[in-house]
């Protein structure tokens, strides 16, 4: 079974040289720590940065330079800054190749719910709806089951949707799964020490298992 860093480390293998990548808050942010040397990517922050760098050194924080999570950040050499309309213009125009974000639920046809729980304080969708509606490739980083032990990989989402038929891949503490265009979660890899049966038990939606499923190498 993977911890949060393990999930991030596995997702980092999906990040290829030359990609522009948008990372959501939480586990997706950790992915930046595991992108290998020699894989040149630029991180997009939807408040208006391409080429986002790490947190600043103590004492060098700049109130005018934050990321989409409102954290102080830095710029790498070659970065650029732009306004919020242009930022979502490049997202809508699919110039950003890969979006990695968290989710509360994903359905077997790729619908995602990650912004609202009825009866709880609603904070808003931020940029999530724009990102999932336009990204060519969306990878979801999440726990396989929720705190109540219920599967988050469902035949159909119960929570209000963020976007429809958009998720391509899911990485959880148990497995890597592809969401097939015709519907269904295809099991691609198992986390170390996790059996196909463990994954089956934790997956409420249609799970597709073909042949021997390899254990992931991270």
């Amino acid at each position: 079974m993977l911890d949060k860093n393990g999930i991030a480390k596995r997702i980092a293998k999906e990040v290829k040289d030359g990609m522009y990548v948008n990372l959501g808050i939480g586990i997706p942010t950790l992915v930046a720590n595991f992108i290998p040397e020699g894989v040149n990517v630029e991180l997009q922050s939807e408040n208006g940065i391409l080429g986002m760098g790490p947190f600043p050194f103590e004492g060098e924080e700049d109130a005018d330079l934050i990321n989409a999570g409102k954290q102080t950040v830095t710029l790498l050499p070659g970065s650029s800054i732009f306004d919020s309309a242009l930022s979502f213009g490049m997202i809508r125009a699919q110039k950003v190749h890969l979006t990695i974000l968290g989710a509360m639920e994903v359905s077997e046809n790729g619908d995602i719910a990650n912004w609202k729980i009825p009866g709880k304080m609603v904070k808003g969708m931020g940029g999530a709806m724009d990102l999932v509606a336009s990204a060519k490739n969306i990878i979801v980083a999440m726990q396989h089951v929720n705190k109540a032990g219920e599967s988050k990989l469902l035949p159909k989402c119960d929570l209000p949707l963020t976007g429809i038929r958009c998720v391509k891949k899911i990485v959880t503490e148990l497995a890597v799964l592809d969401v097939l265009p015709e519907g269904g979660f295809k099991l691609v890899e198992r986390a170390p020490g996790v059996s196909v049966e463990d994954i089956r038990k934790a997956t409420a939606g249609k799970l597709i298992v073909e042949g021997d499923v390899p254990e992931m190498v991270i």
Binding site: P54, F55, P56, F57, E58, G59, E60, E61, A63, D64, I66, G69, K70, Q71, T72, V73
Partner: peptide, 12 residues
């Protein structure tokens, strides 16, 4: 004032 909402830093 230019208040910072989430002050995140790394150590030198």
């Amino acid at each position: 004032e230019k208040r910072i909402e989430q002050r995140t830093v790394r150590k030198k």
